[in-house]
């Protein structure tokens, strides 16, 4: 019996297969047609098709032998300056044989490169433009240094529209003969927030339970990121038990591997659902936003989130004084 991860199995192969990001895909198609590609930045949240678009573009450009003309490097694993000085440079400077005179370097998660490495990359991009074009995929283009941004055509990927997301999952479920209820789809969206790769992984994992995939199945497999857990943690904090709340947070992050950004998003949703006074909701939204921003700046998830919990403890004690 053969199995793959569905996220790979159903990854579009050519630009024509991509259903969403229409404007971007049109532009990329024109690159493929004219057989010329500028340096590009593909920026956008995870699971929106950046890497897929890059791979499809190269496949459309070079055809079946595309692998010989591209290199994929993941900056999260190889983020240092040495990689740029050695691996990248060696690849970039060697001329491509074939009709298209340049190769393509796909730098994934490029926003995780150190500033030094980016500086080195800038020179490499310039010197070897003739022989190599770069596609940098990043969640946050702001973390890519200005000189590189100015050398690249920027493409902003956005989350799939909800209908598209749902249609995609349902089509996949049908092909894999999985019973997927619409509450199940809603739950996947709630948990994965539009990240299609995660959504597909979630669906595949849920399928392994060998029963119809509904909201309950989804929540049961996605660790403890349920709204109820986040609610409980927030309640613990607002009632003044910081250590208790921090313990719950630690379990979510360490034991169940839930991303800090997900927890923040949930907290944000829950604040507006909670029964605290209206003026406080917007004050707390600001606190949540600040924590979110600090996380984006690349700091420790637990530290940032527990600082946020401490703010909730503070808010809780202020509210208690009022009543």
């Amino acid at each position: 019996m053969s199995f793959e991860m569905w996220a790979e199995k159903y990854r579009p192969k050519t630009l024509g297969d991509i259903v969403d990001q229409k404007e971007i895909v049109e532009r990329l198609k024109s690159f493929a047609k004219s057989r010329n590609v500028p340096h590009c930045i593909f920026a956008g949240p995870p699971g929106t098709g950046k890497t897929t678009a890059a791979l499809c573009l190269t496949r459309d450009l070079y055809g079946g032998i595309y692998r010989e003309h591209i290199m994929e490097l993941n900056a999260s694993d190889e983020r240092g300056i040495n990689v740029v000085r050695e691996t990248v440079k060696t690849f970039a400077r060697v001329k491509s044989i074939g009709e298209i005179p340049f190769k393509i370097m796909i730098l994934d998660e490029a926003d995780n490169m150190t500033a030094d490495a980016q500086q080195a990359l800038r020179r490499t991009m310039e010197r070897y433009t003739e022989t190599c074009r770069f596609i940098m995929c990043a969640n946050y283009s702001g973390k890519i240094i200005e000189p590189i941004q100015s050398r690249c055509a920027p493409f902003r990927f956005t989350y799939l529209p909800r209908e598209e997301h749902d249609r995609c999952l349902k089509a996949m479920a049908e092909k894999e003969k999985v019973k997927l209820s619409s509450e199940g789809v809603d739950a996947i969206f709630e948990v994965c927030g539009g990240d299609l790769r995660r959504a597909i992984n979630t669906l595949q994992a849920a399928t392994s339970l060998d029963k119809p995939v509904d909201a309950k199945t989804i929540y049961s497999i996605t660790g403890r990121a349920t709204p109820a857990d986040v609610q409980r943690m927030m309640k613990t904090a607002i009632e003044g038990d910081f250590l208790g709340a921090r313990k719950q947070l630690r379990d979510m992050i360490q034991k169940y591997g839930i991303a800090g950004s997900d927890i923040i998003r949930q907290i944000h949703t829950e604040i507006f659902r909670s029964d605290i006074p209206e003026q406080w909701k917007i004050r707390l939204a600001d606190v949540v936003g600040e924590a979110d921003y600090r996380l984006v700046e690349g700091s420790d998830e637990e530290i940032q989130l527990s600082a946020l919990l401490a703010r909730l403890v503070e808010a809780g004690s202020e509210l208690a004084k009022l009543s």
Partner: peptide
């Protein structure tokens, strides 16, 4: 899977477990 090892161990591994 075209994602970094770091991200894979965080985001894909939990699903593999299930």
């Amino acid at each position: 899977n075209h994602i970094s090892a770091a991200r894979a161990s965080k985001q894909v591994l939990p699903y593999l477990r299930i």
